Simulated scan of single mutants.
Amino acid sequence: MIGVIDTDGDCAEWTFPAEAGAVRAARAAVRGRLRDWELDSLADLTALLVSELVTNSLRHATGPIGVRLVRPADLDGVLLVEVSDPLPDPPRERAPHPEDESGRGLQLVAHSSRRWGTRPGRNTGKTVWFELAVPR
């Protein structure tokens, strides 16, 4: 992990180097923060989706990978999760063949989240984000 920023207790950000260990480190960081926020029920799904997006960043981009969580302000809210990398091109959903070993990450994000999308990065690159409803 290159860095951790905790802005106000309701937001956590990490930067990971673009190397194989980033996926494992991102999952662990996300799980730990969700546990701290008492959102354990979202930990497995969030860690899975983050690992898919970080893996996409590793495959297609070079440079650091950012992960950001924003805790919902209330129990009716959503958890916002963002994964950023320096590649400006937005990811594309693919229609993989049944025999393909990869290509399903964005489909998993799309089907498992409340909403998802992409936007240009703060300075360069892009951010892929998704929202998960907080269970009551």
Rank of each mutant, 00 (worst) to 15 (best):
G63L: 01
A29N: 06
T46S: 11
L69V: 03
D8T: 05
V4K: 09
T62D: 15
D8A: 08
D10I: 05
V4N: 04
C11N: 15
G3D: 14
A20L: 12
E52S: 11
L49R: 03
W14E: 08
V70G: 09
R71S: 05
A28T: 13
E82R: 07
G3H: 11
R71Y: 01
A61N: 07
D85W: 15
R27Y: 04
L42Y: 09
A47K: 02
S57I: 00
I2H: 13
V50H: 09
A22R: 07
R27V: 06
V23K: 01
V50I: 10
F16A: 11
D8I: 03
S57Q: 00
D10K: 13
V30L: 12
V70C: 14
V30P: 09
S57K: 00
T62A: 14
D8G: 12
L42E: 04
A12W: 05
R33K: 09
V81H: 04
T55E: 13
I2F: 12
D85K: 08
D10Y: 12
P86S: 13
T7R: 14
A29M: 03
L58V: 01
T62H: 13
D36E: 11
A22S: 07
R35Q: 12
I5M: 05
A22G: 04
R59Q: 14
V54D: 06
